[in-house]
């Protein structure tokens, strides 16, 4: 039994008030997420990620197709007891405290007063909300709301967790904490299905990913198979190099682009065809000192463009 399974899941909206036209938010999505995996659902903004997740939570109803969680149709009330969901940019009740919100959620799951208090305290610790838990949520920053949102998704110790952009609104430290939390959840045997438009998140966490663009599934598989080899060059940062030397390197085809970054430093972009060792050797003889060398990966956006090609811009049905 898969944790999540969709078959031909399709959602069309009608947009426009006077002359409603159909708009394809999602077209024929067929996908399986196995139990215990951390699965990344990737795509640029507007690709249909949130639509898919809302269909799984039955916040919207599919135009056609079918979705299951743990082998039961998504509408099944019993299945909701085993699922946790973090919506995109979550927002809750202004006049509740974080503690009260989690206790309220616990009450909806049917936990008794002391059980829900204990769960609220444990989860707020887990997502790193300290004394602020006694503040009204309207005083919370975006990042803190994100943490509260993650906590409320975990109140029922869900077997399947659906996160919509879990890293959004978090600072680098917060992102790292959430990554660690996701790995802990995986170690407990949870299935984590999350959407993101940031490749790095997926690289750090996922066993498999699906990539959507333009409302259609573009690729599914291990991330390494899909993107890992797609290094498109190197970025070399050097110090102690004169402008003439840079021009010379450019003229020799060693450097595609040079950007002065101050203090006599330059960020140089090397093409894939030039081995970085060779370029470095040439430049150091001209007096340059190495500051850093990094592979230039293609961004997820680049990947989408390549995978999807000219993604259909017009998503009307007509």
């Amino acid at each position: 039994m898969d944790a999540i399974r969709t078959e031909g899941l399709t959602k069309h909206y009608r947009v426009g008030f006077w002359r409603p036209r159909p708009y394809v938010a999602l077209e024929g999505l067929t996908l399986e997420v196995r139990q215990g995996e951390v699965f990344g659902f990737l795509g640029p903004n507007g690709a249909g990620k949130t639509t898919t997740l809302k269909l799984l939570m039955q916040l919207i109803y599919p135009t056609s197709g079918h979705a299951e969680i743990l082998g039961r149709p998504v509408g099944d009330a019993a299945v909701r007891r085993r699922v946790g969901y973090l919506p995109e940019n979550p927002s809750f009740y202004d006049y509740l405290t974080a503690e009260e919100l989690l206790e309220y959620v616990g009450a909806l799951f049917g936990y008794g007063p002391s059980a829900r208090r204990a769960r609220a305290a444990r989860l707020l610790d887990e997502v790193g909300i300290g004394a602020e838990r006694r503040l009204h949520l309207r005083k919370f920053s975006k990042g803190m709301l994100q943490r509260v949102g993650i906590a409320q998704a975990l109140v029922n110790d869900p077997e399947v967790i659906v996160f919509d952009e879990p890293m959004s609104g978090l600072d680098p430290l917060g992102r790292r904490e959430i990554r660690e939390l996701v790995l802990r959840l995986r170690d407990r045997g949870c299935t984590v299905f999350f959407s993101s438009h940031v490749l790095a998140d997926a690289e750090a966490l996922c066993s498999r990913v699906a990539i959507v663009a333009g409302g259609r599934l573009a690729a599914v598989g291990q991330l390494a198979d899909l993107v890992a080899f797609q290094v498109r060059g190197w970025e070399l940062v050097v110090a102690g190099l004169g402008p003439e030397a840079v021009e010379r390197a450019k003229g020799a085809g060693l450097v595609m682009r040079a950007t002065a970054v101050g203090d006599g430093r330059y960020a140089l972009e090397l093409p894939l065809s030039v081995a970085p060792e060779r370029a470095l050797a040439e430049l150091t003889t001209g007096g340059a000192r190495l500051v850093s060398l990094n592979p230039l990966r293609e961004t997820l956006e680049d990947f989408f463009v390549r995978q999807v090609g000219a993604a259909p811009r017009d998503r009307g049905l007509d």
């Binding site: 909701r80 946790g84 973090l86 940019n89």
Partner: peptide, 14 residues
Amino acid sequence: ERRSIYSLLSKPIR
């Protein structure tokens, strides 16, 4: 409007 309904309706509430 404030999207608090999203997380609420994912709970066991009809």
